[in-house]
Design a protein around this nucleic acid. Sequence first.
RNA 1: GCGGGCGUGGUGGAAUGGUAGACACGCCAGACUUAAAAUCUGUUGGCCAAUAGGCCGUGGGGGUUCAAGUCCCCCCGCCCGCACCA
Length: 860
Amino acid sequence: MFRLKSADKPRQSAMRSQPVTRYNAQVTEPKWQEKWRDAQVFKARRDESRPKYYVLEMFPYPSGKLHIGHVRNYTMGDLVARYKAAKGFNVFHPMGWDAFGMPAENAAMKHNTHPGTWTYKNIEEMKGQFAALGLSLDWSHEFATCDPAYYGQQQALFLDMLEAGLAYRKNASVNWDPVDMTVLANEQVIDGKGWRSGAPVERKELTQWFFRISDYADELLAALDGLENWPDKVKLMQANWIGKSRGLQFRFATRGAPEGFEALEVYTTRPDTLFGASFAAVSADHPLAKALESDPALAAFTAECRRTGTSAEALEKAEKLGFDTGIKVVHPFDSTKELPVYIANFILMDYGTGAIFGCPAHDQRDLDFARKYGLEVTAVVSPDGKDFSVENEAFTDAGTLINSEFLNGMDIESAKAEVIRRIEAAGTGEGKTVFRLRDWGISRQRYWGCPIPVVHCEACGVVPEKKENLPITLPEDVSFDSPGNPLDRHPTWRNCTCPNCGAKALRETDTMDTFVDSSWYYARFTAPEADTPTHMADADYWMNVDQYIGGVEHAILHLLYARFFARAMVKTGHLPEKCREPFNALFNQGMVCHETYSTKDDKGRDVWHSPDEIVADGAGYKLRETGERVTVGPSVKMSKSKLNVIDPIEQIEQFGADTSRWFVLSDSPPERDVEWTTSGAEAAWKHLQRVWRLAVEVAGEERSGEDVALTKAMHRTIADVTEGYEGFAFNKSIAKLYEFTAAIAKSKGERKTAMRTLALLMQPITPHLAEECWERLGGAGLAAQAPFPEADPAMLVEETITLPIQINGKRRAEISVSKDAPREEVEKLALSHDAVIRVLDGRTPKKLIVVPGRIVNVVV
RNA sequence: GCGGGCGUGGUGGAAUGGUAGACACGCCAGACUUAAAAUCUGUUGGCCAAUAGGCCGUGGGGGUUCAAGUCCCCCCGCCCGCACCA
């Protein structure tokens, strides 16, 4: 699920050699990692005496290389985990691998290896890279989704869902490469052509497995309201995706249609515009379109439509095309009015009935279509109720019905209700709630996925495999030398006996969508060894996930599927009822970006260069090898194609993990994209060095006498840093830590308390440095196990505050007042200020606004 | 195309509708040094001005408000998702 592109080498840096007197991360970091490991500091144990806290970052796809985006994601999760542990929670912070998927098959084809070999090798490499980051992970719950122990339980879940009526088979379209004779993922369709063969892609119908997520459409929508700690934008996107709409489904009587098509059933969300209808249209996949394919021109048109890929984006971006079938439908309220029926390439067979009526005046897509084919455009909703017409822009706002007989003068909602009432009375249709959300197709015609545990028997049909035969494991001896599903062409794997009648039968060769794997891993983490999908007592103790962290690119699909799966697991008895919504809080972090470097080749095309090919000179950047000038492009998401990637492992080897951790959290707010700059990383390194020098200095000094200002600053810092940690404003916490470091450096008083506090405040971000400072300052035990500092509220109160004075909304002066000065005193002080007197010039202010503790505004 | 988001100095960014630019990078100046690096100190949105101070300024245009980066409308640009990439 969570694949990030692999990274490349960084620019070289002046920071490379470090004198021995400096903080040496290369020695220190492994030392503390070993101590944490030996003391099993991060091992989660059920403990009823403390509140539990389950922190989860979206688990990675094992591409083989840690990406800087991973560093950001997992550092944020680690901060939360360490902070909550310091606050006294029993923290659970597991990690695993989203290990099925296409990249492993592609690697298998390219390097002639087995996908499993490639995947497990990558996992080993990435685990080492994770270790270098010093994350507070409990590896004792680790699994990969390609482990038979995991996917076998997934098969058990599938069987339970099948029994519960949540899984079924139906026909659906796939992208078909007619040259390679294989199914293509949308990603493998480039400009309508297969990525390897280059052949124009066709749509092909296959019988496939589906999960009935649509059964839960209403509930998944309604329950969004209860997700208080989810970002609003994610909830909004999910709500729009589910797309509940109230509309009218009704039957047009047809003229000239083939037998069996005496009526054409359409769905509309705008029944009020029925009198503005000027055509009807059906999808190229609609049964009517198929029934008419004896007409060669029509067949050519539908074939052309099917050459568009299956993605909604491809369909909707394609030029709107229609084919007049010659068939007419009769207007339900005016039998003298007949509308032409088109086949159109922008109608989705999956939404509504796959057929619509077009009202061009009030739908932009219909209008474009009508203008193209010279169809009538009659406005039936007018902004002011007066006569109205549209040119090239459809009118979609509220208004009053016109040109609509018995609807004239009504508003849109009344008109909708009236049309539905009359159609229902006539018995030709009914009001209907429709969801945009479709059932979840999980069949994949691929090898590297979880086999769907069913058997095809000639006598018994589709038969579920027996649970005692699980896991149905993937065969090892497979070849990837030709396209298509290796399970299909395996000589023996398909052969089995029917669980029902015992006759010879064939296994299903489809595997499951990898989104299935990632829809319940969070529940499996609570008991990865269980011989059922979950262990109820463990799930009951650890669930729900208290804080889930991952990229916003998963805002819809993964999170919606996981919400559905949790419900399915409750229904099938694998999770307690409280887990219907499995993620109590969600945070989406931004991407890591880098500026891009390009030159032009002899044909004028862009050639991209990685940061380590580039050197700076006075005039800008040039290529290290040739000295050719490079064009510096904007900072965009790091990607292989633009080569603007930084290898976090080289960064860690050079500066240490703490520096990378500090840097990815500083500067940018976590939800926003961050730009990786070498200078920024060096600045982080310099600051950590400064903290270390200060710690050494403070540890060695014998001072007495409290510095009250420093004590106050310490409590202020504790409060501010805590607020930042709690509210995912880590960049602000870091700004406060910078300030506090400077305050300690300047203080002439006793500084050990402040310095120890600084170490503990930094521990969630820079755990290794914190341990080293903590130890040197005489802290007891491990910093990772020390309680988080608490601010004394009494120390946070400021006696006097500075109030800005605005004149007509512009700041002109400021006054100092005691924190609870009465309004009258503030007004008097403000009006007696020189700047105010000067501007007033003897006049009385029109208005005087005092916002206590914030501002004074004098309106002249 | 549809859905969602973002846009603030040279740069990353800060700012419950209430002092725009916290903190950091960079630049400049100074200290230390034979010198450099490192370190420390200071300045740093633009324009005018000796100073005081003034004017302008949060992608563009309009609006609401005593007060708008923040709320509303229109436009521009960029990013994410669109159901078989993970």
